[in-house]
Amino acid sequence: ETQAGIKEEIRRQEFLLNSLHRDLQGGIKDLSKEERLWEVQRILTALKRKLR
């Protein structure tokens, strides 16, 4: 995994995270989306740690 590859994956995950946040802010309670949001946040945290 290169730095560029990790950064690209971070961009993808952040896009997905923002999309999930928008969907959930629409007021629709969706447990699967909430679980996915937490999963994406965990992935992002792990990726950012790899960059250090």
Results as ranks from 00 to 15, higher is better:
residue 41 Q to F: 12
residue 34 E to F: 15
residue 3 Q to L: 15
residue 48 K to A: 03
residue 14 E to K: 05
residue 3 Q to D: 06
residue 23 D to V: 06
residue 19 S to L: 13
residue 6 I to M: 03
residue 51 L to A: 02
residue 28 I to R: 06
residue 30 D to R: 01
residue 51 L to E: 01
residue 47 L to N: 00
residue 1 E to G: 08
residue 34 E to R: 13
residue 12 R to E: 03
residue 42 R to M: 06
residue 6 I to Q: 01
residue 47 L to E: 00
residue 26 G to A: 10
residue 39 E to I: 05
residue 31 L to I: 12
residue 24 L to H: 03
residue 43 I to G: 02
residue 15 F to W: 09
residue 1 E to N: 10
residue 25 Q to G: 05
residue 51 L to T: 01
residue 7 K to P: 02
residue 4 A to F: 07
residue 42 R to D: 03
residue 40 V to F: 04
residue 3 Q to V: 15
residue 37 L to H: 06
residue 8 E to P: 01
residue 25 Q to V: 14
residue 5 G to K: 14
residue 13 Q to I: 15
residue 16 L to K: 03
residue 15 F to R: 14
residue 26 G to W: 07
residue 6 I to R: 00
residue 36 R to C: 05
residue 2 T to G: 06
residue 23 D to K: 04
residue 45 T to P: 00
residue 23 D to H: 05
residue 30 D to G: 03
residue 26 G to Y: 10
residue 14 E to W: 10
residue 25 Q to N: 07
residue 17 L to M: 06
residue 45 T to I: 13
residue 33 K to N: 04
residue 28 I to Q: 09
residue 38 W to G: 07
residue 13 Q to S: 02
residue 28 I to Y: 06
residue 5 G to A: 15
residue 44 L to S: 00
residue 6 I to A: 01
residue 4 A to Q: 10
residue 13 Q to R: 02
residue 26 G to M: 10
residue 2 T to M: 09
residue 30 D to H: 05
residue 49 R to E: 13
residue 50 K to D: 02
residue 24 L to F: 04
residue 18 N to A: 15
residue 8 E to R: 11
residue 28 I to T: 09
residue 46 A to M: 12
residue 34 E to G: 04
residue 4 A to R: 10
residue 11 R to Y: 05
residue 16 L to P: 01
residue 28 I to L: 10
residue 47 L to R: 00
residue 5 G to D: 13
residue 5 G to C: 15
residue 16 L to D: 02
residue 12 R to F: 06
residue 48 K to I: 11
residue 4 A to D: 09
residue 45 T to K: 11
residue 24 L to Y: 06
residue 50 K to I: 15
residue 42 R to P: 00
residue 19 S to R: 11
residue 40 V to T: 05
residue 51 L to R: 01
residue 24 L to N: 04
residue 34 E to A: 08
residue 17 L to S: 01
residue 30 D to W: 03
residue 10 I to G: 01
residue 12 R to N: 05
residue 10 I to Q: 01
residue 45 T to C: 13
residue 7 K to Y: 09
residue 11 R to D: 03
residue 23 D to Y: 08
residue 10 I to M: 02
residue 28 I to F: 08
residue 9 E to M: 10
residue 32 S to I: 13
residue 39 E to C: 05
residue 15 F to S: 15
residue 7 K to D: 03
residue 36 R to H: 07
residue 3 Q to R: 11
residue 25 Q to A: 12
residue 19 S to P: 00
residue 26 G to T: 11
residue 7 K to N: 06
residue 37 L to Y: 14
residue 1 E to L: 10
residue 24 L to D: 02
residue 38 W to Y: 11
residue 14 E to Y: 14
residue 47 L to T: 00
residue 39 E to P: 00
residue 41 Q to R: 12
residue 29 K to S: 08
residue 34 E to D: 04
residue 11 R to W: 04
residue 26 G to R: 07
residue 12 R to S: 03
residue 21 H to A: 12
residue 51 L to N: 01
residue 50 K to R: 08
residue 18 N to D: 13
residue 41 Q to Y: 14
residue 43 I to F: 09
residue 41 Q to K: 11
residue 24 L to E: 03
residue 43 I to E: 06
residue 46 A to D: 12
residue 6 I to C: 08
residue 35 E to K: 14
residue 1 E to S: 11
residue 23 D to E: 14
residue 38 W to N: 12
residue 6 I to F: 02
residue 37 L to V: 07
residue 39 E to Q: 08
residue 25 Q to I: 08
residue 2 T to N: 08
residue 49 R to A: 13
residue 38 W to T: 09
residue 7 K to L: 14
residue 36 R to S: 07
residue 10 I to D: 01
residue 33 K to I: 15
residue 50 K to H: 03
residue 35 E to L: 11
residue 29 K to C: 13
residue 14 E to N: 02
residue 23 D to L: 10
residue 33 K to L: 15
residue 1 E to I: 10
residue 39 E to D: 05
residue 45 T to M: 10
residue 14 E to G: 02
residue 43 I to K: 07
residue 7 K to S: 05
residue 34 E to V: 14
residue 27 G to I: 06
residue 48 K to N: 05
residue 14 E to P: 00
residue 36 R to K: 11
residue 46 A to S: 05
residue 41 Q to P: 00
residue 18 N to M: 14
residue 52 R to A: 13
residue 40 V to G: 01
residue 16 L to E: 06
residue 42 R to T: 04
residue 27 G to P: 09
residue 4 A to H: 09
residue 5 G to V: 10
residue 51 L to Q: 01
residue 20 L to M: 03
residue 4 A to M: 07
residue 35 E to N: 09
residue 51 L to C: 03
residue 39 E to M: 06
residue 12 R to C: 12
residue 23 D to A: 12
residue 42 R to L: 07
residue 49 R to H: 08
residue 9 E to Q: 08
residue 3 Q to A: 10
residue 36 R to F: 07
residue 27 G to W: 05
residue 42 R to W: 05
residue 38 W to D: 10
residue 7 K to W: 15
residue 47 L to C: 01
residue 33 K to G: 04
residue 9 E to N: 03
residue 48 K to M: 08
residue 15 F to C: 15
residue 30 D to L: 02
residue 2 T to D: 09
residue 42 R to E: 06
residue 17 L to C: 09
residue 39 E to F: 05
residue 11 R to V: 06
residue 8 E to S: 07
residue 42 R to G: 04
residue 23 D to C: 13
residue 1 E to W: 11
residue 12 R to Q: 07
residue 20 L to D: 00
residue 11 R to H: 03
residue 28 I to E: 10
residue 4 A to K: 09
residue 19 S to A: 13
residue 35 E to M: 13
residue 29 K to Q: 10
residue 39 E to R: 04
residue 26 G to C: 13
residue 5 G to E: 14
residue 17 L to I: 05
residue 10 I to W: 01
residue 36 R to A: 13
residue 27 G to D: 08
residue 34 E to I: 15
residue 14 E to A: 04
residue 34 E to L: 15
residue 35 E to I: 11
residue 22 R to T: 07
residue 40 V to Y: 03
residue 1 E to A: 11
residue 1 E to T: 10
residue 31 L to Q: 13
residue 14 E to D: 02
residue 25 Q to D: 08
residue 23 D to T: 06
residue 45 T to A: 14
residue 51 L to W: 03
residue 52 R to P: 03
residue 30 D to N: 05
residue 49 R to T: 07
residue 17 L to D: 01
residue 30 D to P: 02
residue 10 I to K: 01
residue 30 D to A: 03
residue 44 L to M: 02
residue 25 Q to E: 11
residue 27 G to A: 07
residue 2 T to P: 05
residue 50 K to T: 04
residue 40 V to R: 01
residue 46 A to Y: 08
residue 7 K to E: 08
residue 18 N to G: 05
residue 3 Q to M: 14
residue 35 E to G: 04
residue 17 L to Q: 03
residue 44 L to Y: 01
residue 21 H to L: 15
residue 12 R to P: 00
residue 8 E to D: 09
residue 8 E to M: 07
residue 13 Q to F: 15
residue 1 E to C: 15
residue 38 W to I: 14
residue 41 Q to M: 14
residue 47 L to Y: 00
residue 36 R to Y: 06
residue 43 I to Q: 07
residue 44 L to A: 00
residue 3 Q to G: 04
residue 22 R to C: 13
residue 29 K to I: 13
residue 41 Q to V: 14
residue 11 R to P: 01
residue 11 R to Q: 05
residue 48 K to Q: 06
residue 8 E to C: 13
residue 32 S to V: 13
residue 15 F to I: 15
residue 25 Q to S: 08
residue 31 L to T: 15
residue 40 V to K: 01
residue 21 H to Q: 14
residue 9 E to D: 05
residue 46 A to F: 09
residue 27 G to C: 06
residue 37 L to K: 03
residue 44 L to P: 00
residue 51 L to K: 01
residue 9 E to C: 13
residue 46 A to T: 05
residue 26 G to L: 13
residue 3 Q to Y: 11
residue 20 L to N: 00
residue 35 E to V: 09
residue 10 I to R: 02
residue 9 E to W: 06
residue 31 L to M: 07
residue 18 N to R: 14
residue 12 R to M: 06
residue 15 F to N: 14
residue 13 Q to Y: 15
residue 18 N to K: 13
residue 5 G to T: 12
residue 18 N to T: 08
residue 13 Q to A: 13
residue 24 L to W: 03
residue 27 G to V: 05
residue 9 E to L: 12
residue 22 R to P: 02
residue 42 R to K: 10
residue 48 K to R: 14
residue 48 K to Y: 15
residue 33 K to Y: 10
residue 47 L to P: 00
residue 49 R to I: 12
residue 43 I to R: 09
residue 25 Q to K: 12
residue 43 I to D: 02
residue 31 L to R: 13
residue 17 L to V: 06
residue 8 E to Y: 05
